[in-house]
Amino acid sequence: MQEIHVVAAIIEKDDKFLIAKRLKGEFKDLWEFPGGKVEPGESCERALIREIQEELNIHIEIQEFFINVLHKYPSFVLNMDCYICHMEDKKITLHDHSDIRWISLDSTDAISWVPADIKVIDAYKRRILND
Rank of each mutant, 00 (worst) to 15 (best):
W31M: 00
T93N: 08
E64F: 07
L56K: 02
V114H: 08
I62M: 09
I103T: 09
F27E: 03
I128H: 03
W113K: 02
N79V: 13
K28E: 15
D29Y: 09
L129P: 02
V6N: 15
A9D: 10
V38Y: 08
G41C: 11
H86W: 02
I11A: 09
D14C: 03
S107E: 15
R126P: 00
A9M: 08
D15S: 14
C44Y: 07
I84Y: 03
D106T: 14
H71D: 07
G36I: 06
D106H: 13
N57H: 14
D117V: 01
I67F: 11
S104K: 07
A9S: 15
K24T: 14
E88A: 12
L48Y: 01
C82A: 14
S104Q: 14
F76W: 14
I62C: 01
D15V: 03
R101I: 04
I121N: 01
I92S: 02
K13A: 06
D15Q: 13
K125N: 11
K125C: 13
A20V: 15
K21R: 13
G36H: 01
S75N: 13
I103G: 08
A20G: 12
I92L: 10
E54T: 10
I67G: 01
E88K: 14
R126T: 11
L23K: 11
I60D: 04
K91M: 04
I58S: 04
P115Y: 00
D81C: 13
V69Q: 05
F33I: 13
Q63P: 03
R127D: 06
H86D: 05
E3F: 07
I11Y: 05
G25M: 06
W113D: 14
D89L: 00
Q63W: 02
L129M: 13
F66I: 14
H86R: 15
K119Y: 12
S112V: 13
K24A: 15
P115C: 04
I128W: 00
E32M: 12
P115T: 05
G35T: 12
H86Y: 06
K28L: 09
E54A: 10
E64M: 06
V69L: 02
D122M: 05
I111P: 07
F27M: 10
K16L: 15
H97D: 10
E88T: 12
E42G: 02
L129D: 03
D117Q: 00
K24Q: 13
Q63Y: 03
T108E: 05
I10E: 04
C44W: 03
G41V: 12
D106V: 10
I92N: 06
E64V: 10
G35K: 05
W113Y: 05
V114N: 07
D99S: 11
W102I: 08
L78P: 00
V120S: 06
E42H: 00
E26W: 05
F66R: 04
G35F: 11
Y73Q: 01
Y124K: 11
V114M: 09
